[in-house]
Nucleic acid binder design. Structure first.
Length: 665
RNA sequence: GCCCCCGUAGCUCAGGGGAUAGAGCAUCGGUUUCCUAAACCGAGGGUCAUAGGUUCGAAUCCUAUCGGGGGCACCA
């Protein structure tokens, strides 16, 4: 019942140690403990149907002084059985075999059962997982197929911070689910068929700098996009103001002054700093917007010239996007099927939905899907054009037909929650039941001040600029600390003897890692503040801290001339002679438990929380337990094993988040 | 107007039925002949927005109110 998520197959390494073959197979501590209590719960008369719920009440202790885990089922059970909680607890304990896994449990407070793992069992388990190249993490017993929809940039626009979360959360989920043995299809649902291309085409025809385009098409296209957007925006503000707010007398007296006034006020309105209540809403013409919309329409209608330009622009745009992905250490996407790919299917989708009665005819010949009295989704506009809902439905059909997934995850901004709720309802009505559709939603990236992130001139910061800055700051940090340490007389290599390549590598790993970790360590669903100072802090739950902990582990092996391979192929016996050793060992055993929780809820921050716990436990160990100068060879070997396992756990966990480590820093 | 999310230490955030509500930053104090001090140890700091309710037990679940953010068919 708690077992069906992990494989029970013994691995070669567990068998090698297996003096007690029946019990010791999984590294999932929680499942192990829960299984101990199942017979006892039935024996004292718990309702078998509720046993899984009761077993769910076995959880890690909130406070270490109460043991490693606690069982809270005696209280509710006592209520049902008409007994006192401590009595029930006692009965259960008496009927529960400890199997050498736990010390005899104790009852505390109103009926808590406190569980403490035996040192012998912990030591044995740690030795076992050290020999596992998966660190004891089992493959999923029932591997599933996931389609993950993430990143989804608009191809013609530069990536900005808004794309950051979807990209790195999606990437982390791809890595995590794959690690657990699932089949994962990562699909980058590109916005490659929208208005942006109309803007590019219009910009190309109107403002193109031919030489710039020839030498660096990507940059020139980006310039055109921004230019068209700005020109369009300016004209938008001006024409609206001119139509609706013009003081005719002032305009005739001094047209320039009046236009300036209108523009300035319009800017204020556009920034939302004025109340819009008294704004007259009259129609106005924006020739630029008009023009690029026409280009978009022509493209969609199959105009040969525009299509040719689209085909010319696409590779350059994609290269620009891939460049940022590489900068971010994102795994290559399995597929990048964008809106253009689905475009030919849309008419058929609407026909099918109409035929099945999923959709109905709306105002003026449009086609809608109705979910409630005031809740409809448009799938074909009056003018015959399709919407993103139509594309998303076509995408669902294609994905299910192509990959037969058990689950489709959409890693998309929380603001689209309503859209996805409707979309999933529509998919179900269409007949795609039995598939888990899940909007893996996330909050916004805000500036340090809690407001939407803006550059100095008010624009949205481009992602690549931000990442360049992160790398630069990572490099500064490394250099700063290097000189500080040198000044303190610490054992550091000479600055000039560190190669530029290594310095650059450290800057990248630290800088990019900081950005990703800061994002992933935040609860996915809440907004977070983008703050370089905080993400590059050397203290606290940051990538830097984890990378440092890793580098310290590696340093011990370098200093001690120890070969880590020996601790993986033939792990020595683990000795727990110090509380810090025990605390670290217990943390290392929790890896699987944490990964399965993170995967079950698609919450990467469970992994960062765990990393923090491991790194803190390692710090305690590092302070309290000398490794290379341990009292005996046996103890030294045991501590080296713990050190190596810590390094591997940190490296693997960071790796699942798409964050790298360096051997020294 | 309707719907969704949020409100926890000075700040940024975890915890989302279980024991005395945690962490980082900031503040104050301490640690370096010793494997990386990018580190560690200690201290102070809370009406978990408010008011009711459910429960053996509520920061957590329910209701209402206040405050913040977001979304509501022809943009995606």
């Amino acid at each position: 019942m708690f077992r069906d998520t992990v494989s029970r197959e013994p691995t070669a390494s567990t068998l090698a140690v297996g003096s007690r073959p029946s019990r010791i197979r999984t590294m999932n501590l929680l499942n192990e403990l829960r299984s101990l209590f199942e017979p006892a719960l039935l024996a004292v008369g718990a309702d078998p149907a509720k046993v899984p719920d009761y077993l769910g009440m076995v959880k890690p202790s909130a406070d270490a002084k109460h043991g490693d885990y606690q069982a809270n089922f005696a209280m509710p059970l006592a209520k049902v059985l008409g007994k006192k909680p401590p009595e029930v607890a006692k009965e259960i304990i008496d009927a529960t075999p400890t199997d050498g896994v736990i010390e005899p449990p104790t009852v505390a407070g109103p009926g808590f059962i406190n569980l403490k793992l035996t040192d012998a069992w912990i030591a044995e388990q740690v030795q076992t997982i050290a020999a596992s190249d998966r660190l004891g993490v089992a493959m999923a017993a029932t591997p599933k197929t996931f389609v993950i929809d993430y990143s989804g940039p608009n191809v013609a626009k530069p990536l900005h911070v808004g794309h950051l979360r979807s990209t790195i959360i999606g990437d982390a989920l791809v890595r995590l689910l794959r690690f657990l043995g699932h089949t994962v299809v990562g699909d980058n649902h590109l916005g490659d068929w929208g208005t942006q291309f109309g803007m590019l085409i219009y910009g190309y025809r109107t403002f193109l700098n031919k030489e710039a385009y020839k030498s660096d098409p990507v940059r020139e296209l980006a310039r055109l996009y921004v230019l068209v957007r700005n020109v369009g925006g300016t004209i938008d503000i001006l024409s609206n103001a001119f139509t609706n707010f013009r003081d005719q007398a002032a305009f005739e007296a001094d047209p320039v002054a009046e236009l300036t006034r209108l523009y300035v006020n319009g800017l204020k309105r556009a920034k939302g700093s004025d109340d819009d209540d008294d704004e007259a809403k009259g129609p106005f013409v924006n020739p630029v917007a008009d023009a690029y919309r026409r280009e978009t329409a022509k493209l969609h209608a199959g105009d040969a010239d525009n299509l040719k330009l689209w085909q010319e622009f696409m590779p350059a745009c994609m290269e620009e996007i891939h460049k940022v992905y590489r900068q971010l250490d994102i795994l290559p996407m399995d597929h990048e099927l964008g809106e253009s790919f689905y475009q030919p299917m849309l008419a058929g989708v609407v026909e099918e939905l109409q035929a099945k009665g999923v959709s109905e005819t709306g105002d003026g010949g449009s086609v809608i899907i109705r979910f409630g009295e005031n809740n409809v989704a448009l799938i074909r506009k009056r003018d015959g054009a399709f919407t993103y809902t139509t594309t998303d439905l076509a995408t669902i059909k294609h994905r299910i037909a192509t990959w037969k997934p058990d689950a489709v995850l959409y890693v998309v901004d929380f603001r689209q929650g309503h859209h996805f709720k409707n979309l999933f309802t529509a998919a179900e009505r269409w007949g795609f039941s039995g598939v888990e559709f899940n909007h893996v939603s996330f909050g916004s990236v805000l500036g340090k001040d809690g407001k939407p992130l803006k550059t100095r001139d008010g624009g949205v910061p481009e992602l690549s600029t931000l990442l360049d800055r992160a790398v630069e700051l990572g490099g500064h940090l490394f250099e700063l600390i290097h000189w500080q340490r040198a000044a303190m007389g610490h054992d550091v290599p000479k600055w000039d003897e560190i190669s530029d390549a290594e310095k650059q590598e450290i800057a990248r790993v630290v800088g990019i890692g900081a950005v990703k970790y800061a994002d992933l360590s935040q609860s996915r669903t809440s907004d977070y503040r983008f703050d370089f100072d905080k993400m590059l802090a050397t203290n606290g739950n940051t990538a830097t801290y984890m990378q440092y902990a890793y580098a310290r582990c590696r340093s011990i092996f370098r200093k001690g001339n120890a070969d880590e391979k020996a601790f993986r192929t033939r792990p020595p016996k683990v000795l727990l002679t110090h509380p810090a050793e025990r605390a670290l060992a217990v943390q290392l055993l929790k890896f699987e438990e944490v990964l399965s929780n993170a995967a079950a809820e698609y919450l990467p921050h469970y992994i960062t929380q765990y990393l923090w716990d491991v790194a803190k436990a390692f710090s305690g160990f590092f302070e309290g337990c000398p490794v290379l100068t341990a009292g005996s060879e046996e103890l030294k070997a045991s501590r080296l094993l713990l050190t190596d396992l810590t390094a591997r756990t940190i490296q693997t966990a960071l790796g699942l988040l798409g964050i790298r480590t360096v051997e020294r820093m």
